[in-house]
Amino acid sequence: MSKHNPRLQPSRSADQPCPCGRPKRYGECCGRLHEGSAKAATAEDLMRSRYSAFVVADEAYLLRSWHPDTRPAGVDPDPRTEWLGLEILGTGEGTPFHNEGTVEFRARFREGGRTGELHEHSRFLRHEGAWVYLDALDS
Results as ranks from 00 to 15, higher is better:
M1D: 13
M1Y: 09
S2W: 07
S2Y: 13
S2L: 13
S2H: 11
K3G: 12
K3S: 13
N5F: 12
N5W: 11
P6I: 12
P6M: 08
R7I: 14
P10S: 12
S13L: 11
Q16P: 03
C18S: 03
P19I: 00
P19E: 06
R22H: 09
R22K: 14
E28P: 03
C30M: 02
G31P: 00
R32M: 14
R32T: 11
R32F: 03
L33W: 02
L33E: 01
L33T: 00
E35I: 15
G36S: 10
G36W: 07
K39M: 09
A41G: 15
E44R: 04
D45G: 11
M47D: 03
S49Y: 03
S49M: 04
Y51S: 00
V55N: 00
V55L: 06
V56Y: 03
A57F: 09
A57K: 03
D58F: 04
E59Q: 13
A60H: 14
P68E: 07
R71M: 02
P72G: 03
A73H: 11
G74T: 08
V75K: 01
P77W: 04
D78R: 10
D78P: 05
W83P: 00
L86Y: 01
E87Y: 05
I88T: 09
I88V: 15
T91C: 14
G92D: 10
G94S: 08
E100M: 06
G101M: 01
T102N: 06
T102P: 03
V103M: 07
F105N: 01
A107F: 04
F109C: 07
F109G: 02
E111I: 11
G113A: 03
G113W: 08
R114H: 13
T115Y: 03
H119V: 15
E120C: 06
S122F: 03
L125T: 06
G129F: 02
G129K: 06
A130H: 10
W131R: 02
Y133K: 01
D135A: 14
D135W: 05
D135I: 02
A136M: 02
A136P: 01
A136K: 12
L137I: 09
L137A: 13
